[in-house]
């Protein structure tokens, strides 16, 4: 693998930029998707049938649609409906929508781990349902889904590779590898570097997630 050194000499800064862009896309998508997912989960608890129906539809659509199809729709089809979103926000929007659907799903499972008896007790104390949701149900639900959410975050980071399919001004890791493989013979070395970066990032996230899980996990 002697070609790694000359590769890094030439493309080193490009790789760092690409890694930062990957992290940036991941962070923005996850934060927005996670927040949106929480809102959806809470809204789904309200006894409003039309709302529950629409939100269930939302979750099913964005869980089942291929991310690339969604991105292409946002980037290439929406402008025909007079909605023109720039490329980077389009990628973040796509990943945010998909992330929110999976978050809503995992959170709902998390919510179901909260014992009904707690709610009864809270009700009998005169707490309002919304207060119960925010101070009893949600905190416990969130603490119980740290592990799947960590997996989701890693999956999201790997999904930022689809940004290579639209003409972003900057290149993230996968786009950079494709470009290097096309322009030069250093494809294997480029792939090795990118793979190492993805793996390292994933390991850091997994370690952080495991630590957080250990701290906040509720043992029943």
């Amino acid at each position: 693998m002697g070609s790694v050194s000359p590769l890094l000499a030439e493309y080193g800064p490009a790789f760092v930029q690409a890694l930062l862009l990957t992290w940036k896309l991941t962070a923005l998508s996850f934060v927005s998707g996670f927040a949106l997912g929480i809102v959806i989960t809470v809204a789904r608890l309200l006894p409003l049938r039309p709302l529950r129906f629409v939100l269930t539809l939302y979750v099913e659509v964005f869980r089942n649609i291929p991310s690339v199809a969604l991105l292409i729709f946002i980037v290439f089809a929406l402008p025909d409906l007079n909605v023109v979103i720039d490329y980077e926000p389009s990628v973040i929007l796509t990943l945010c929508l998909v992330c929110s659907a999976f978050t809503a799903d995992y959170l709902r499972t998390g919510i179901n781990t909260v014992d009904g008896g707690q709610i009864d007790a809270a009700r009998s104390l005169g707490m309002q349902p919304m207060t119960i949701i925010t101070s009893v149900v949600l905190p416990q639900a969130l603490r119980s889904v740290v592990q799947p959410m960590t997996s989701l975050l890693i999956a999201l980071m790997l999904s930022t590779a689809l940004a290579s399919q639209v003409p972003l001004p900057g290149k993230e890791l996968t786009a950079l590898v494709a470009k290097i493989a096309n322009d030069s013979a250093a494809g294997i070395a480029a792939f090795a570097v990118a793979a190492a970066m993805y793996l390292a990032s994933g390991l850091i996230i997994a370690w952080a997630g495991a630590t957080l899980d250990r701290k906040v996990r509720i043992l029943r």
Partner: peptide, 18 residues
């Protein structure tokens, strides 16, 4: 410069004002 994968996508980008 913005590079597109296909002729059709580039045309659409022009038409849509991107």
């Amino acid at each position: 410069v913005q590079e597109f994968q296909t002729h059709q996508e580039a045309l659409d980008a022009l038409r849509q004002g991107r």
